[in-house]
Design a protein around this nucleic acid. Structure first.
Ligand code: FES
Ligand code: FES
Lengths: 141, 141
DNA sequence: CTTTTTCCTATCGGGATAATAGGATTATAT
DNA sequence: ATATAATCCTATTATCCCGATAGGAAAAAG
């Protein structure tokens, strides 16, 4: 239950790799090789991250990828949203009229509450928490 | 992302129905009819809930289903676990040796932290929070 | 104008989910 | 006993999403 897609896990590994690689030197094939990810599949992942404004890409010779912001500015909620979409336990979270129930539906509020709990966790942690040694990201801050 | 299966949503609706139906009078086909769920599919759901000790079933004539505990004793974490398994963002949450990383892997701790956040939400809410009017289950208690 | 790299589109296989089907079991009621 | 009414059990299907793959188009550098 609530398992994370390989796409998101790959994306985080790629981001962590970029955080260790300054400049434009990180090439897609290089990251795939180092992290053991299918190169072509990784392309789509990096494109999503670029579209979301988390990485910058440059094509042509001497092109490649780099982080668009320092690791501390890359919020994990954005990463997850870019790769697997917004946290949405049930479809009626943001668009009513799907279920035949009304807006006061108790189940709906229950799931929205879960969404808030997840968003709060993901929104308060950044890539820096994952790559840096030291503080434990599990503990509430 | 983090969407809930129809199975779990059906299960919650069935539980809510049982909470409104005293005694052994709740028959599978009846619940399915009232909640608009495929009868045969609902059977499997109720079996899971029974195996988990959340509902009791009696077969034969005059048989049916009823809650095994009062709604306030049915923790939503148990419901979710019974229908879709334990909260497990990544497989290495409880069994190491899957990823080629070691136990100090930062990503792993990050996901375990998310698991704790989700489990805390689901563990502190019961069926009573869903069926009862009044307090908003979204707010932290 | 050749090389290197990202970008775009299309396809494919596997696995899980939701649903369906048919019957076997169990208990009640007459 | 026997008919009835219900849960239980096993197997099958249809569909969708994901992870992966493929081939090439566009762009930037030298
Ligand atoms: S309105 Fe969507 S679950 Fe009730
Ligand atoms: S050990 Fe599983 S993600 Fe690192």
């Amino acid at each position: 239950m609530f398992s994370v897609s390989a796409r998101t896990q790959y994306g985080i590994r790629a981001l962590a790799y970029l955080a260790r690689t300054p400049g434009w030197e990180a090439i897609g094939a290089q990251i795939a090789e180092a992290e053991g990810i299918s190169p072509k599949y990784l392309e789509g992942i990096l494109t999503r991250l670029a579209t979301a404004g988390l990485v910058r890409s440059e094509r042509g010779k001497n092109g490649g990828y780099r982080l668009a912001k320092p690791p501390g500015g890359i919020v994990m909620a954005e990463v997850v949203a870019a790769l697997d979409g917004e946290v949405r336990p049930v479809d009626c979270v943001d668009s009513l009229g799907i279920c035949d129930h009304d807006s006061s539906c108790r189940s709906r509020r229950f799931w929205i509450g879960l969404k808030f709990a997840i968003d709060e966790y993901l929104g308060n942690r950044t890539l820096a928490d994952i790559i840096e040694e030291g503080a434990d990201p599990v503990s509430t801050r």
